[in-house]
């Protein structure tokens, strides 16, 4: 049984891979490629963050900081020290991770709302440093003219999607491993999990750090793609947007936030000329998802599927059941 499952899994994975590999052959429009690449980068970042938000229930309002740390680090290494990309990208990810690790220990003394605002406070500190450390970050100007990783967007596309698949696979394995199960146990009842011998703090720290590593990597990809690093790209709004994507896609489902990234990016393009209404609709969708579609898009589809099969299975009313 399990063998068949994994074979089928492999097959569907292959299908996805083939689709992704073939796509650029049909797309010659730089705009489509650009937003697919941007969506891919966001998808990578929210994939990591979902491990924190969806699996542990801790909402971070500050991941723009790690996104930005990764972006600036890679930009600075390449522009000021002439580092090659294969050096700057890993260092960007690692530095974001190290800082995330250092911040994670004290941060997990906080719970719920305090945790969210605590992470926000740190992100604001980081943003103020971006804005003011002129000799290194270029201050309000940011760093303009960050070299591109690849001469064309198609290569970018392959690179980003290769990493999306690799990172997705790793995180998926992690979530299915005992670590993931322990995380879910923690989310449901932290005290109980503790009492059965799970080292919760270490677990949470690990997840937080991992999400920062991934965010840092994503930030580096983004900065090289758009060609500049600006403090305005890594603000509270960016952090909120990451959370919005996760919630709308379906927190704790991993695949959900990935869809969320694509969904919101497409929605924003559809509504590009509606301006105020666009953000209004974001707000409304967010409220409706939380209230009526626990589990976001993916949760909704799943629920639809299950309710078609058999009625009555009651769903947990909370997407990200909070710590309190």
């Amino acid at each position: 049984m399990s063998k068949i499952t994994s074979n089928k899994k492999l097959l569907s994975l292959l299908i996805v891979l083939v689709i992704v590999l073939l796509l650029p052959l049909f797309i010659n429009n730089a705009f489509y490629l650009q937003i697919l690449v941007v969506a891919g980068i966001w998808a990578i970042v929210v994939l990591g963050l979902d491990l924190l938000v969806g699996y542990t229930g801790y909402v971070s309002f500050g991941h723009a900081a790690y996104f930005g740390i990764g972006g600036y680090t890679s930009a600075i290494l390449v522009m000021k020290f002439g580092a090659p990309f294969w050096v700057s990208l890993p260092i960007a990810a690692i530095l974001a991770g190290v800082i995330g690790y250092l911040i994670s220990k004290p941060s997990f003394r906080l719970t719920g709302t305090y945790f969210a605002i605590g992470t926000l406070a740190f992100a604001e500190i980081v943003n103020i440093i971006f804005t003011n450390w002129e000799s290194v970050t270029g201050g309000v100007y940011g760093l303009i003219g960050v070299p591109a990783l690849f001469p064309n967007l198609k290569l970018y596309f392959y690179f980003v999607y290769a990493f999306l698949i690799i990172i997705g696979f790793i995180i998926y394995r992690l979530a299915a491993s005992p670590v993931g199960k322990a995380l879910i146990a923690t989310k449901e009842n932290e005290n109980l999990a503790q009492s059965i011998g799970i080292d919760i703090l270490r677990m949470k720290q690990f997840v937080f750090t991992l999400s920062c590593v991934i965010a840092g990597f994503g930030g580096a990809l983004l900065v090289h793609l758009v060609g500049f690093a600006s403090p305005l790209s890594f603000t509270v709004n960016t952090s909120l947007e990451l959370i919005v994507i996760i919630i709308i896609g379906g927190a704790g489902t991993l695949i959900g936030p990935v869809f969320g990234a694509f969904f919101l990016l497409i929605l924003s393009q559809y509504l590009a000329t509606f301006t105020e209404l666009r953000l209004m609709i974001y707000g409304l969708v967010l409220i409706l998802v939380i209230k009526y579609f626990p589990g976001g898009i993916v949760g909704g589809i799943k629920r639809l599927a299950t309710s078609m099969k058999k009625k009555g299975r009651k769903l947990d009313g909370t997407i990200t059941s909070a710590k309190s």
Partner: peptide, 8 residues
């Protein structure tokens, strides 16, 4: 307000 949006 986001400069990356301008690029898109």
């Amino acid at each position: 307000e986001d400069p990356t949006k301008a690029v898109e």
